[in-house]
Design a protein around this nucleic acid. Structure first.
Lengths: 228, 228
DNA sequence: CATAACTTGCACACGCCTGTGCAAATTATT
DNA sequence: AATAATTTGCACAGGCGTGTGCAAGTTATG
């Protein structure tokens, strides 16, 4: 093979590619319609160089979304637990850990040809939620006044609401995880005390395994307000 | 003042103006970035004629949003009830009746200079929700594990979730109103049975005063699924 | 250090949207 | 029927975004 001295691709190029994806994650999260100029700027590169890594705008977004989708889907798929209530809570808190990916998918996918890809990824999650709900309704642990379909959508949206709200008004990892679970359980039909006790009563749901979190505490954030 | 025969403005012009606003409501609800061409088409007019009624794109959206804001704000402000739980439920169901306006505001206001106007309108509603929550937390009828601010936002978002979901998957007026109330009560801390009974137990909350709705029914939609 | 790999800046063509002017056609009103 | 009020179509300037070509730079790498 007398190929005239081929050289390996430069390592910083790959790094820049990553920078671009990271920048896209940030920028498109704020505004899905943002220009490539904005993305490039965020990455500290020129608009022109974007086209050295991605054929066009759509391919960049596609890469971004599919990567996130893979992450989220695989994380959720690994959730298994006999009790559907616990399972749902686990799915919720899993999503919490993947917020960034989830938000990107949600924001970018609204309209356009990306909807297909995201829908596919989300489909996997939806299936899990759906079956958990069916089991829960059957054994009476979840509300029976709404059909599965609607309840599943409400659960999904409720989780997203917490996720969104937490980006505008930050929560640390443990607080956030707990809040998503609390809201999911609320949507599914539990009263707030039941929900709190349910979470506290299941070690699987106290995943942070915090050093100084020995005692079960009832309030997420300091309410600074006595409660009867 | 010998004005040389002035004529009154034509009546169809005013009608067209209304058509344009109606069209804008529909089009911008699907896509806030839609072109005036699209709006005009929806109204059955030419793009050019839009400028005969509105100075520019922004003024059209502004008019649209402020009109909706007025509607919603005044409707919500008229809600008064000693029990904060009932008050919250009433606000929720009031919003339900104003879905269209609410959605327009939400969709158009995302970014851009309109955010100010919508924020102002929504501020009035937020105040009502906030004080209801404070009262509720104080008398122990609402969950005490979250600070007012966050809980208020969650309530707000939860209502919007139901509103959104109902447009994709329709509910009739009564079902929708009940569902928003149910979800609001769930967010505020009630278990699903408590929430259902609470609504059934308060005539103020069964506002449709339906002819043949004599008996209190527990399920919103037919779940076609026995529940324990 | 030589050089291939990458980045950059500039140019351009293109598309889509806004906002405006103006003459011609319509249409409600008197 | 006369005529003022509207609408329309077309043209134009301008803005902003994409995607591409190319020459000139910079930088990693062998």
């Amino acid at each position: 093979m007398s190929s005239p001295a081929k050289r390996l691709p430069r390592r910083d190029a790959a790094a820049n590619r990553v920078s671009l994806l990271a920048a896209a994650r940030i920028v498109f999260n704020l505004d899905p319609g943002a220009s490539l100029e904005a993305v490039a700027a965020e990455a500290g590169l020129s608009r022109r160089s974007v086209y050295g890594h991605f054929a066009n705008r759509e391919e960049l977004q596609l890469e971004l979304v599919t990567a996130g989708a893979r992450r989220v889907a695989s994380a959720v798929e690994s959730v298994t637990h006999p009790d559907p209530l616990v399972r749902l809570a686990l799915i919720a808190s899993t999503l919490w850990r993947e917020v960034e990916s989830v938000r990107v998918m949600a924001v970018v996918a609204v309209r356009g040809p990306l909807a297909l890809h995201t829908a596919a990824a989300l489909g996997s999650i939806r299936a899990n939620v759906r079956t958990a709900i069916i089991e829960g309704q059957t054994d009476g642990s979840m509300r029976g006044d709404l059909p599965v379909e609607r309840l599943a959508r409400l659960v999904e949206h409720t989780a997203l609401v917490v996720l969104e709200d937490s980006t505008a008004h930050p929560l640390d990892t443990r607080e956030g995880g707990r809040l998503v679970m609390l809201m999911t359980l609320a949507t599914i039909g539990l009263g707030w005390r039941d929900a709190g006790e349910f979470i506290d009563g299941h070690s699987e749901l106290n995943w942070p395994a915090d050093p100084e979190a020995a005692g079960g505490n009832a309030s997420i954030e300091d309410t600074s307000r006595g409660r009867g």
